[in-house]
Simulated scan of single mutants.
Amino acid sequence: MVDEATATHTTVDATVLESSVIDQSLFQKVLRQAGRSLARPALEALEMLLDASTPAQARLTMLAALTYLIMPIDLVPDLIPVAGFSDDLVALTAVVGLWSNHMTPQIRDRARRKLDRWFPVGG
């Protein structure tokens, strides 16, 4: 809780750009490409989880590891030097191992088709 009487305020000088200075179509393309880059592995992981040929144990492990990686609470807080990221490394290693053992061209293709629908290239 911030005590209003003792709070200090910092003044920052900023210049607001006119919308005519920013190429909005270029900015939209950059954001779309960033979205594609982030969405591709997520869609591949989703397709792997949904694929009937992925063993149930691998699906469960993948789901648990991915869930752990996106959870805001860690077993070992990230603020602890070196050790803080060790639990994340274990989860990431599990994901990479499952990925390399169970990713198929068919799964990648389904993910790519979905990616193209959600993030059209050149659109």
Results as ranks from 00 to 15, higher is better:
G123E: 09
A39P: 00
D74Q: 13
V96N: 13
R32K: 11
S86C: 11
H9D: 05
A14M: 12
G84M: 10
V30Y: 15
G123A: 04
L63W: 10
M103G: 01
D74T: 02
V21N: 01
S25T: 13
V12L: 15
L17T: 01
D109I: 02
V16C: 07
W118G: 03
M48D: 11
D13W: 04
T54P: 01
R36T: 00
S25N: 13
V76Y: 04
L115C: 03
P41T: 04
W99H: 15
S100A: 05
G84F: 01
Q33L: 05
E18W: 11
I107T: 02
M62P: 04
S86R: 06
D116I: 00
E4I: 08
D87A: 05
L17E: 05
L69T: 00
L43G: 00
P72V: 11
A39R: 05
G123R: 07
E18H: 08
V21L: 03
V2Q: 02
Q28S: 07
P105Q: 07
V76S: 08
T67L: 06
A7D: 05
H102V: 03
L66E: 06
V21K: 06
L69S: 01
T54L: 08
R32H: 03
D51Y: 00
K114V: 12
L50D: 12
L50G: 11
L26V: 14
P41H: 03
L66R: 00
P72H: 07
E4W: 10
L79I: 12
G84D: 06
A5W: 07
R117E: 14
E44V: 09
D116E: 10
I107K: 02
Q57L: 07
T93D: 03
S37F: 02
L92G: 10
F85Y: 04
A52I: 08
P105S: 09
V90Y: 02
V30H: 06
H9C: 12
V95D: 12
V82E: 05
T104W: 04
I73E: 05
G84T: 08
L66D: 02
V21C: 02
H9A: 10
F27T: 15
G123H: 12
D3Q: 11
G35N: 01
V121M: 04
E18D: 10
D87Q: 08
M62V: 08
D88P: 01
P105L: 11
R113W: 05
E47I: 01
L38T: 01
G97E: 07
A39T: 00
V82P: 00
P72W: 08
D13S: 10
D78A: 06
A52M: 06
V12K: 13
A5G: 03
D116F: 00
V95L: 13
A14G: 02
A7E: 02
P72K: 14
I73H: 09
L92H: 13
Y68F: 00
V95S: 09
D51L: 03
A5H: 08
A56S: 10
V30F: 02
M62Y: 00
A34Y: 07
A83S: 09
R59P: 06
T93H: 09
T15H: 01
R32Q: 14
K114P: 01
V96C: 13
T54Y: 06
T93L: 04
A5E: 12
L38M: 13
G123S: 04
K114A: 10
L92F: 15
I73N: 07
I70Y: 04
A45D: 11
Q106N: 09
Q33S: 03
L43M: 05
A111G: 02
R59I: 07
M62N: 08
P120W: 05
A34S: 05
I22K: 12
